[in-house]
């Protein structure tokens, strides 16, 4: 399973990209996201015990606060056209793999 998940909104030009390997489940992004696009879920495979996931990408308003406030470079919110050029961590494997 890839660490990186991409969530495409239907109605608008928004992609949320999450690198599960980089996420430490600190909850910061979830708290700054006023529409409630994101949620924290248990992740027993990660030593932090939790990880972010997209609850409903359609709720996203592209404020990008989650991206700006994430201390771990784990979440990005971009336009589809911007997606291509982004460097992705290949790096270390998650403990699940």
């Amino acid at each position: 399973m890839s660490n990186i998940t991409r969530h495409y909104a239907q109605g608008k030009d928004i992609v949320i990209i999450i690198d599960r390997n980089l996420c430490k489940g600190c909850d910061i992004c979830v708290q700054v996201c006023t529409p409630g696009t994101l949620e924290l879920v248990d992740a027993p495979d990660k030593w932090e015990g939790s990880v972010v996931q997209v609850k409903d990408v359609e709720l996203c308003n592209f404020c990008r606060l989650c991206e700006i406030q994430c201390p771990d470079f784990a979440i990005r919110v971009v336009k589809k056209a911007e997606e291509e050029g982004l460097t992705m961590a290949k790096g270390k494997k998650t403990s699940a793999e």
Partner: peptide, 9 residues
């Protein structure tokens, strides 16, 4: 080198 060494959050 990621994830970095800093505590979650």
């Amino acid at each position: 080198k990621l994830p970095h060494m800093w505590c979650p959050g």
